[in-house]
């Protein structure tokens, strides 16, 4: 059994906790949260040992691994302490407030050899996994341009302030929403290394951006557009999509549906010349416990397997999240020029 503790029992934390609770190889040894009520309920009905001080929890419960699901500004100090204590870490996204902090943590993780993973769950979505495979194997030829988009209804009216609306705590559309798109592009194509122009717009929020539009490129010079808006109420929930144009074909994919066009006769097994459509249902492996999308269970299962030494430990590493933080910072800096 892998002994796991959780810091931060908010929306993501509780979801992780439920999936961990149902995992056959996990024993939950502690939960840390600052809300008296949340702690009260978890102690009483789930029987978890709860704490308000995470270091006290770690010292007392001696976990093998810790899930960190607190506001981004706390990631750096907490993750550093955990790594120093020899504990494997899964942390929520975005990784850190700036790439310097992320770099330090990714180096520390490498030195210690501990398992390190960040919650960019899209990498466990069947359609995006297939897109990566098709691109890496060169089926759409040389990439000439890409577009990454995400839309959803997070801030659709002026409303009360939370940590998500505080730029110093890791809030805003770029950090919270666009980070998913950037992370996907960095992984599927190559890390975005330059930003030629960007606009960060507030629509309803007072202090943070509600939409992000950027013209970017990867090292080889291939260009791309990022268009993200979390104030679009025509979406029921977050919708992330990626379009990749190549010399031999074109891919348009979201988390549900993958459409791919092959120009010529070079296509993988199960596909044909012209347009092809695949659904996530065809591309998804069953999980042992389902809560809110196979990808959430799959990423936790991958982390636990990594702790047990059963994987290559190469999905969503701190190193990849550092590259994402670097791109975020590029886009942010460009917008203020």
């Amino acid at each position: 059994m892998v002994k796991v503790a959780l810091i931060g029992a908010g929306k993501m934390g509780i979801s992780h906790l439920s999936i961990l609770g149902a995992h056959p190889n996990v024993e939950i040894v502690g939960v840390c949260d600052t809300s008296k009520m949340v702690v009260d309920v978890l102690e009483r009905y789930s029987g978890y040992k709860c704490f308000s001080d995470y270091l006290k929890m770690v010292d007392e419960s001696q976990p093998d691994a810790v899930f960190v699901a607190v506001p981004t500004k706390h990631h750096y100090p907490m993750v550093k302490q955990l790594l120093k204590r020899g504990i494997h870490v899964f942390t929520e996204k975005p990784f850190c407030l700036n790439p310097e902090e992320s770099f330090e943590l990714s180096q520390l993780a490498k030195q210690t050899g501990l398992v390190n993973q960040v919650g960019y769950h899209n990498k466990f979505v069947g359609t995006f996994k297939e897109v990566k495979k098709l691109v890496k194997e060169g089926f759409i030829g040389e990439i000439t341009h890409f577009q990454g988009e995400a839309y959803g209804p997070v801030a659709v009216k002026k409303k009360s302030e939370t940590w998500r609306s505080d730029p110093n705590e890791g809030g805003g559309c770029l950090m919270d929403y666009a980070s998913h798109v950037i992370d996907l592009i960095n992984d599927i194509i190559a890390p975005i290394e330059s930003c030629k122009g960007s606009i960060l717009k507030s629509i309803y929020s007072k202090n943070v951006d509600d939409s992000v539009y950027a013209l970017v490129s990867i090292k080889s010079g291939v260009s791309g557009v990022i268009s993200v808006n979390w104030s679009d109420e025509t979406y029921r929930k977050m919708s992330t999509s990626i379009t990749i144009i190549g010399t031999e074909g074109k891919i348009v994919s979201d988390a549900n549906e993958l459409k791919i066009y092959f120009k010529g006769d070079k296509f993988p097994k199960g596909y044909s010349k012209g347009w092809n459509v695949k659904y996530v249902t065809d591309l998804t492996d069953e999980v042992n416990f389902y809560l809110r999308g196979e990808e959430y269970s799959a990423q936790i299962d991958y982390f636990i397997k990594s702790v047990k030494g059963e994987t290559k430990k190469d999905i969503n590493t701190f190193d990849s999240a550092w590259k994402t933080d670097k791109t975020i910072s590029l886009i942010k800096n460009q917008s203020t020029l």
Binding site: I14, S15, L17, S18, I19, L20, G21, A22, L42, Y45, S46, G47, F289, Y290, L291
Partner: peptide, 8 residues
């Protein structure tokens, strides 16, 4: 399923 996973 949330309650189920949490053992509640």
């Amino acid at each position: 399923d949330l309650l189920l996973g949490l053992g509640m």
